[in-house]
Design a protein around this nucleic acid. Structure first.
Lengths: 220, 220
DNA sequence: GCGCTGTGATTTGTATACAATGAGAGGGTA
DNA sequence: TACCCTCTCATTGTATACAAATCACAGCGC
C-alpha cells in the first residue's frame, strides 16, 4: 500500500487493508453513494494488484456498503427511501429486542459503563466534533447490545448501522439541538436502571424513530 | 465446470456457479460442518481455476455458510450451541416482527397462497420426502415474510435460516410426528386470517421455539 | 432526424505463475 | 521421554496475463 495507517495493518492481508481503507472512505463521505469503484483505478491508487482490490470489495459487499452487478462493476451503495425504511425497521426490531434482554441481564458494572458512555457522548456533543459524536453514540448503543449477549444480533446490527451511517452522519451535521440525544440516552439509562423493560423498549424505539424520520426527510 | 446443472448456469459467472454448487453441498450435507474447503482441490473437482473458487467461497462466507481464517483457509461453518441459540433468537425476533406486519397487510390473494402453501407442505409431509418437506416449509414461511414487505428483513432471515438449515434438516429426519408442524401452520394461518396479530406472533414464536429446542437437544 | 450496426477502448472475468506463510515431520539435546 | 529447532511441503496470498463482455460512439441506411 506504499504506507501504512498504523502498524497492525502491516500484518493484515492486503484485502483487509483495502477493505478498511475503502470502508473509511465510504462511511465518512470521500466516496459518495452511487460512485463506481473501478478495480484498475483503485489498484493504482492504493498500490496493490487487482486481486486484493476485488477481495476487499467483496468484503464491503458483505457489509452492505457496496453493491455489485456482474460484468458491471461495483458501486458504493446508495439507498432509496424504501430501503432506508426497511433497514431502520430491521434495526429497530433487533435493537429493541436487545434492550429488552439487556434490562434483565445488566450488572452494576455495565450500568456504570452505560452512564459513562453517555457522559462521553455529552462531551462530544459539546465539542461539536461530528466524528466524535458519531463514535461515542455508537459506543453507547453498543454497550446495550453487548449486554444482551447475542453475538449474531450484534453482528447484524453492526452491519445494518453501517449501511445507514453515512446518511446519519450527514443528518447529524445539520441537527439543530443534538443535546436532545443526550437526554434521550439518559431516559433510556434510567429505564434500564429501574428494570422497566417495556419503558426502555419504548424509549429506544422513539429514539431510533425520531432519527429515522429526520434522515428520511433529508433523503427525500 | 464441464457440465451444467441447468441452462441458466451457463450464463452465470463461474463464481456464482461455484457458489450455488457448494451451497447445495453444504445445505444438504455432502460437505459437513468443520470440513475444510481447499482451493486447489475444489478447482480440480469443479474444473475451474482458483480465482472463481475463492470468489465463490467469499459468497458463501457472506451467507454465513463458511468461515475463513487468514492464511488458514475456509471451513464449512459449524455451530456451537450458543451460536445456534443466538441465530434462532435473531430469527425469532425478525420473523415475529414479520408476522405482525403481515397481519395488517395481508390480502385475500396472499391469504389463499398461504393456505395453498400449507397444503403443499402437508402433501410433502405425507410423501416423507425430506427435501420436499424442507422446501415447502420454507415456501410457507416465505409468504409471511414477503407479505410483511420489508426486503432487508427478508434478506436477513434468508441468511439466518441458511445458517441453521443443515441442522434443521437432520432434525426433521428424526422427527416422529411431522404432521404437528402442519397443524401449527394451520393455527398461524387462522390467527392471520382473523387479524389477531398478537396471537399470530405468539404461535409463530412457539412454532420456532419448539423446533429450536429439538435442534438444540440434538446438537448437544 | 433517428435508429441501427459495427468497431475499438475499457472493464470485468478467469487462469496461471510466483511469493510468503504455516503446519507438521524428523532429528537432536537435555 | 519430552522439548525444541529446523527444514520441507502444502496451502493461501498476490501479481499479472489473457479472454470475454460491455459501453461509447462513429458511420451508415432509412
Amino acid at each position: 500500500m506504499g504506507f501504512y495507517e498504523n502498524d497492525e495493518d502491516a500484518f493484515l492481508p492486503l484485502r483487509d487493508v483495502v477493505f478498511k481503507q475503502l470502508r473509511e472512505e465510504i462511511l465518512y463521505g470521500k466516496l459518495k453513494p452511487g460512485e463506481r469503484l473501478m478495480e484498475i483505478a483503485l489498484s493504482e491508487r492504493l498500490g496493490v494488484s487487482r486481486t486484493p482490490i476485488r477481495e476487499g470489495i467483496r468484503l464491503l459487499e458483505k457489509e452492505g456498503l457496496v453493491v455489485m452487478l456482474p460484468r458491471r462493476g461495483a458501486h458504493v451503495a446508495s439507498i432509496t427511501a424504501k430501503q432506508l425504511e426497511d433497514v431502520l425497521e430491521a434495526r429497530r426490531t433487533l435493537e429493541t429486542f436487545a434492550v429488552n434482554v439487556c434490562c434483565a441481564r445488566i450488572t452494576q458494572k455495565r450500568f456504570e459503563e452505560l452512564e459513562d458512555a453517555n457522559r462521553k457522548f455529552a462531551r462530544a456533543v459539546d465539542s461539536r466534533d461530528l466524528r466524535k459524536m458519531a463514535d461515542t453514540d455508537t459506543a453507547f448503543h453498543n454497550i446495550i447490545i453487548d449486554t444482551a449477549g447475542n453475538e449474531k444480533v450484534k453482528e447484524l446490527l453492526i452491519s445494518l448501522k453501517e449501511q445507514i451511517f453515512r446518511y446519519k452522519y450527514e443528518f447529524m451535521k445539520e441537527m439543530e439541538d443534538p443535546t436532545r440525544l443526550v437526554r434521550e440516552h439518559e431516559q433510556i439509562i434510567k429505564a434500564i436502571g429501574e428494570s422497566r423493560a417495556d419503558k426502555a423498549v419504548e424509549l429506544l424505539r422513539m429514539h431510533i424513530d425520531s432519527q429515522a424520520i429526520a434522515i428520511y426527510r433529508k433523503i427525500k
